[in-house]
Design a protein around this nucleic acid. Structure first.
Lengths: 242, 242
DNA sequence: CCGGATCCTTTCGGATACTG
DNA sequence: CAGTATCCGAAAGGATCCGG
């Protein structure tokens, strides 16, 4: 009898999948049921620029344990935020990628990022992944900040071993992806994550970084200047909010 | 010696206030350190339309326990998201209200709400507070949805005992607050939360609700028609996303 | 080496009762 | 009314192990 009870309990456990929920009809609460668990949004964040393997996610999220990562991936897949895909034999690997709906979290990330940088009490300290640095460029890219000289250019930016391709058309960032540019870009940058971030933050003028050899530019330096000046400057440590 | 060690440990525990953190320099991770804990964003949500008492929050968040609510309020106050304020003697009470920075989470809420309603797997079932219903009006209010006939009107809408005042100017929702209108509004609505939501969702035409007596209108019915048609219609249960 | 599963400990959240 | 105290189950953290 005891075994039967245990078996029933086990079945109930594995089938019903009673994830805890806020149980509200509010769409905000529903969203939080889906991506409000610890680590969930950070897992999704890591997929914003394309598919990643389990191992990539583990490395990008220092502190997450394998058990938690597996659980989040399973849940997010069930909810339709991401999907699991097996790459064909040449590069046989299992990757996770966002669904169309999952990619719709972009505005949530941008809103969170724009809000977080204005924190009056907590400082922005700690490591930032190369992906996040490049995505910060997109998040804070001008567009609301008034009229801006429109320009068009293509970029390939290497932060250490991480290479990205960008395209600006009429002053709008229309492409941002991992990997080298398909055709020869107008600007080629080779630098480190730290140096690139310093330039973006306005901590070091682009010219200085180039002169000091911390940043190597091939091609149209002026176009690069426009790019790094495009993001709206952000106060990292503003005055206390009222 | 053992007591001394315990005492030191205790002091360290209570003073350092080691809240768990993702420890990243990414502004998204920082935001989640602040409002990513369970219930935190829902507590903030309840303050979007103005100050609330502890008791109000408890009622609006069925399922939250007093201990957790207290902890969240303490943390959010420390982080500068909300502040505690004592109302003067006439209505002596302790209320919680958002700081200016805390109110900046508005875009996060709107992004989450717009995303959540498109969930391909989870349905929007459960209770919705009167506040959330009214805020949904703001979140989905047209503005991106193409050109729309601009109009101006003031409203007072009573959902049961909850009364709200609204103002639309040139087709934009410029005011939404708890409490009756200061001056006589052009439209006065008296209905229930359920009936109002049905009309907003498009489940029941406004005229039918009025005819059936589920909704009483005093004043400019045409202006009310414009208001309930303004929010972009939302699929509650859309086709599975790719 | 990749993609996890398992085990154990610690922390957090949920339920209920109780107090200034 | 505005919380705190207590107890317990669930989730997360940390380390190790396993199958392909």
């Amino acid at each position: 009898m005891e075994n039967v009870a245990s078996a029933i309990l086990l079945i109930a456990r594995t089938e019903v999948q009673v994830t805890r929920t806020y149980g509200e009809g509010c769409p905000i609460a529903l969203s939080l049921d889906i991506v409000g668990e610890r680590w969930a949004l950070l897992v999704v964040r890591e997929l914003r620029l394309g598919p990643r393997r389990y191992r990539d996610l583990q490395e990008a999220l220092p502190g997450i344990t394998p058990a938690v990562l597996s659980k989040r991936l399973r849940e997010l897949e069930e909810y339709g935020v991401l999907r699991r895909r097996e790459l064909p034999p040449p590069a046989a690997a299992r990757v996770y990628e966002l669904t169309g709906w999952g990619a719709g979290l972009e505005l949530v990330f941008q809103a969170l990022a724009r809000w977080g940088v204005r924190s009056p009490v907590l400082p922005l300290t700690g490591e930032v992944s190369a992906d996040s640095v490049m995505l910060g460029l997109r998040t804070f890219f001008a567009g609301d900040g008034g009229p801006r000289e429109p320009w068009t250019a293509s970029y390939e930016i290497a932060l250490g071993r991480d290479v990205y391709r960008l395209r600006v058309e009429d002053g709008r960032l229309t492409e941002l992806a991992r990997g080298p540019a398909a055709t020869a870009p107008e600007v080629l940058v080779r630098t480190t994550k730290a140096a690139w971030q310093a330039v973006l933050d306005g901590a070091e003028p682009l010219d200085d970084a180039v002169a000091a050899g911390r940043l190597t530019v091939t091609g149209d330096l002026k176009a690069l200047q426009r790019l790094v000046e495009a993001p709206q400057r952000v106060r990292t440590r503003p005055a206390p909010a009222g």
